[in-house]
Amino acid sequence: MIRVEIRKLMRRPRTWISIVLLCLLPAIVAVLLRVTHLGPRPGEGPAFLSAVLANGTLFPAAALGIVLPLFLPVAVAVIAGDAVAGEASVGTLRYLLTRPVGRTRVLVAKLVSVLVFLFVAVSAVAVTAYVIGTALFGSQPLATSLSGAPLTTAQVVQRTVVVVLYIAWSMIGVASVALLLSTITDSALGAAIGALAALVLSQVLVTLDAANAVKPYLPTRYWLSWVDLFRDPILWSDIERGVLVQGVYVVVLLGFAWANFMTKDITS
């Protein structure tokens, strides 16, 4: 079933369009930087964007920083919101369930396919950004970590791979919200918008001092912690928490989706 879901995902034009758009955005930024040579001041703008002008190998990290706050969550919410609601609205859900495919299996397969999408999309961004970054800005044998220690290109690539994994996993909370809503409504768009609303709420709360008590539990709280991978030594504590928090969100939201979907009347 998981294989079938992945095949469905990969044969959708929407999947590839969103991945291309995700890759295109950092590319535009890179071209503008190359043409104008106007990098943001260090400490301003997305992480590492200031360092890219000097060393293209850091561009994948900067590119991920560019798509992370908005574009990646939007793409994920659209794909995950479509997962069940999309099948319901074209009517294929009823044929899937009478095939029969167990409802739990449908949910798990959908989640796994969204996860695959995430890894493919984030990796695509990183790989194209590496190609574009080194082509436009050249590469230096040593890059500067946040802690000032030099990083070899091999180290930068290794850490970027971990960043890819972490960012993909960071999105799983949004994906789970969209998937839950997708089992509640038959409107794929509604599910995606609902998930984005939850995301915006979380982003607003993260910046609010009054919300300090709930901050550690917000899904977006540790999103930017991938930057910690470029410290020396690497600061793992927030990354570990981020992985854990997303895991809890997956379990809880998928639990709700499961409880709702198992005995839901399918009238689509």
Binding site: G255, W258, A259, M262, T263
Partner: peptide
Amino acid sequence: SRQTRRRWATVVAATGFL
């Protein structure tokens, strides 16, 4: 509906625990 209630009870309890 009995299964539904049991499922929700399980999920809510697990959520509460977490």
